[in-house]
Amino acid sequence: MFNRGVVFPVLMIVVSAIILAVIPQFSVPSYGQQDASVGAKFFPTVLAIAQILICIALLIQQRAKKIEAIESEKIFSKMSLFGLCFLITYAVLIHLLGYLVASLIAFTLYLAYLKTKKPSYYLFAYVFVVAIYYLFGHVFVISLPEGVFFRGFYD
């Protein structure tokens, strides 16, 4: 098994290395724009190097302590994976169908997946969704997503 105390710092070192590779590609300031002696590339470079150093220190610390090496619990359990899928599905649904329809569908899916049979839960869910819709749209006058398919549906 991988030891996450090792994998993550290594991953961050790789990310920092990629960042360091991207920095030289920043375009040069144009239009006679002056820059400080410490330019646009300075901060990201310092930070990426600092991040590498911190990760190396973490790896050394990990080695010295040798603890938590055997940890069988997975980062993503079945439920949290479901949560992640739910989030993404919900976001895509909102994009396509708009807030109201997407939320009603998503809440129903969620309750069904968890095999809830209490009608009161479903009722609560729908009331909540509609209440938020009303609160944003008509009290705060903030437009919620309309969705690609339903433009004009909510007006």
Binding site: P9, M12, S27, P29, A36, G39, L47, A48
Partner: peptide, 22 residues
């Protein structure tokens, strides 16, 4: 480490002094 992650995230966007995209 969390701090450097946050600081790196904060450098995304047009550079505040020269408007160079980063």
């Amino acid at each position: 480490l969390a701090g450097t992650i946050g600081l790196l995230v904060s450098t995304v966007g047009l550079d505040p002094i020269t408007s160079v995209p980063r």
